[in-house]
């Protein structure tokens, strides 16, 4: 085996950092965008066709660029934001550009699942759009949002493997540079095993949390 346990632990920490931070920033960007996407739809509480159409198109553009290309294409933006284009923090920027629009879509689909009757009740009570979002929409969608956020996090773990291209490091990078490029089967197996445990753990956690919240 070409790597030692310290290297594996360091890579694991890098992966957790990349996924953790990019997840937080992606939620900060994706959640409001997803809500906006939903509420500006036709017939929704603040229907606004121009905003919806533009937002919808922009999100589609980001979602259609393969991550490996996005990673390279936005290097100038990355440099602008974190001051460098190499390293773990530099990998977070493209990950956010990748996961933010994805989460916006997932949030939109979660909100679309909310019973229209509940929104009608909110309207009948004279709720403001702000109250409708925070008192009705989000609490009712929470369980589904958690399921979707779990999916997004797992997507981020996959994408973070490619972040090695810009020196982001992480478990995936270890698997590619040692396991794949230098034919180190043991490293490959260990890293893959770690990724499997990570994904399984996250998925179970998400499922349990969502189930605990879900009612009716």
């Amino acid at each position: 085996m070409l790597v030692n346990s310290e290297q594996i632990i360091e890579a694991l920490i890098q992966t957790i950092q990349m996924v953790g931070f990019s997840f937080i920033f992606s939620i900060i960007i994706g959640l409001p965008l997803g809500i906006l996407l939903f509420v500006t739809r036709k017939g929704q509480i603040i229907e606004n066709l121009p905003v919806f159409t533009v937002l919808n198109a922009v999100i589609n553009v980001f979602r259609s660029v393969p991550f490996i290309i996005l990673l390279v294409a936005i290097i100038p933006v990355t440099r602008l934001i974190v001051g460098t284009s190499i390293g773990t923090s530099a990998a977070i920027v493209p990950l956010v550009f990748y996961a933010g629009p994805y989460i916006a879509r997932l949030v939109e689909s979660s909100l679309l699942e909310v019973d229209k009757g509940v929104l009608e009740a909110a309207d009948a009570m004279g709720a403001t759009p702000f109250q409708t979002i925070f008192r009705f929409l989000l609490p009712e969608a929470l369980s589904s949002l958690i399921v979707n956020f779990t999916i997004a996090t797992i997507g981020l773990i996959g994408a973070s493997a490619m972040a090695g291209t810009v020196g982001g490091g992480g478990i995936g990078d270890l698997a590619i540079t040692f396991g794949y490029q230098r034919f180190d089967t043991t490293t490959m197996l260990i890293t893959v095993a770690i990724l499997i445990v990570l994904v399984q753990g996250l998925q179970s956690f998400g499922n349990i949390l969502s189930k605990k919240i879900r009612r009716g």
Partner: peptide, 28 residues
């Protein structure tokens, strides 16, 4: 919105928030 607050509405399919308790629903 003010006028709506002086009008109560009851629905065929109840339209309650499933994520909230009976108390929270009535308090809404």
């Amino acid at each position: 919105r003010e006028v709506k607050k002086s009008i109560g509405m009851v629905f065929q399919h109840f339209n309650l928030l499933n994520s909230k308790t009976v108390y929270a629903n009535v308090a809404m």
